[in-house]
Design a protein around this nucleic acid. Sequence first.
RNA 1: GUGGGUGUAGCUCAGUUGGUUAGAGCACUGGAUUGUGGUUCCAGGGGUCGUGGGUUCAACUCCCAUCAUCCACCCCA
Length: 455
Amino acid sequence: MVKNEALTPKGTRDFLPGEMVKRNYVFKIIRSVFERFGYIPIETPAMERVSTLTGKYGEEGDRLLFRILNSGDFLTGISDDEILERNVNKLKSSISDKGLRYDLTVPFARFVVQHLNEITFPFKRYQIQPVWRADRPQKGRYREFFQCDVDVIGSNSLLNEAEQIQIIDEIFKKLGVKILIRINNRKILSGVAEAIGEADKMIPITIAIDKMDKIGAYKVNEELAVKGISEKAIRELQPILGLTGSVEEKLNELENKILLHSKIGRKGVDEMKKLFDYLTTFDLKVDPVFDLTLARGLDYYTGTIIEANSTEMKIGSLCGGGRYDDLTGVFGLKDVSGIGVSFGADRIYDVMEKMDKFPEETASTTTLMFVNFGEKEEIHCLSLLAEIRKSGIKAELFPDKVKIKKQMNYANKKNVEYVALVGEDEMKNGLITLKNMKTGVQSQITLDELIEEIS
RNA sequence: GUGGGUGUAGCUCAGUUGGUUAGAGCACUGGAUUGUGGUUCCAGGGGUCGUGGGUUCAACUCCCAUCAUCCACCCCA
């Protein structure tokens, strides 16, 4: 069946013209805000060396990496024994040394190290490109999707954190998408883990408590126990997670009691206080909340972590990011800290489509179309067409001499605003019959009048 | 990686406790309108019912497998 042969791979999609107009609208707004804050664009290749990508995202991330089979005889240098051993993971790395990028942050870290001498710090860049994950597709989850990243690298200032939140606020305000911005700090989470005597289990603890509002405290505790957290530690964790009050009250409680003996934890509290101080001076549409249960799974985050979710539709996060103190370290560049967030263009599109947030742009591709009456008329119309295009009007000539009805139908479907009919009569007296497709009204006018009328 | 739902025309879907000729809307083609679309009316084309096997006198319908797709979990944009 034809149907089954003409399909995009699982989790990937084509974009029709109507969808592209809307997608470009989203990209345009995101890009313009990025640039207004002084960020400049870069691009990196779709594929990276596997060694660049692995070990940065945690176990789950490595599993979701798309790998590219080596070209040529990829079995060169591999013994029969190794193949018979059937050790997939080992074999994988021998027959594939490239992979599709999983996000834009890690390739950016690689980029910074590679081009160290060509960039100036602090380096503020934005990057809008597709990324790939071998995940199982579902609602709001694709195997190929666009991320829009903004990062500052080479500055420790919390002003950057504040700016990133300003950018998030600005972009969603412009798009008309209602969101909740949550902020937390990995250092606080680290301190909490330390305070309850499970310092080395920070990651499993954070991943478990991240699900608090989703599955409830009981299930979270169950998961913690499964991950090997002691009963005593779980008990000690409860009052911490149940902290209430204002941001300030929560932070004070953490600083003066829970994290009193955790140096790293108190550092985190300091950072949060300073960040919120900055934020109060801004005029934000959405007030970010301090959410101790926000975790974020990616391994490389070390400080502030940020996430934005739609408050109108259940679809995962629309935007996420945070500070990474040593992502360039693995590429040989120590002590360079960065922070950035990533906007999920496809999810943002989905929310806007579902909630009907796209503006009513007519977005017609062509303003004027000439009907094709035949060879003599074609030549005549082509010179008119050139004049019309020169004046900046989007215009085209139907390429085939087929029934007028068919050509009109095409114009109608394509949302063409005006149709020009120039046949024998019009050629003779130097006029153009111009039809307004919306009103159906038509009149015979000169070229100059036509240009005047529709430009 | 784990669990569940759905596969019938190009698209969205009906199809009775299994019963002989599988339907609708939209789209497409032609006509009413040989230089006029979007509305209306008439006519027409298009299906090995995802694929393979099984049960049965008989399968779109029941069973198994397989593939595709969607949803949920894990994790994430």
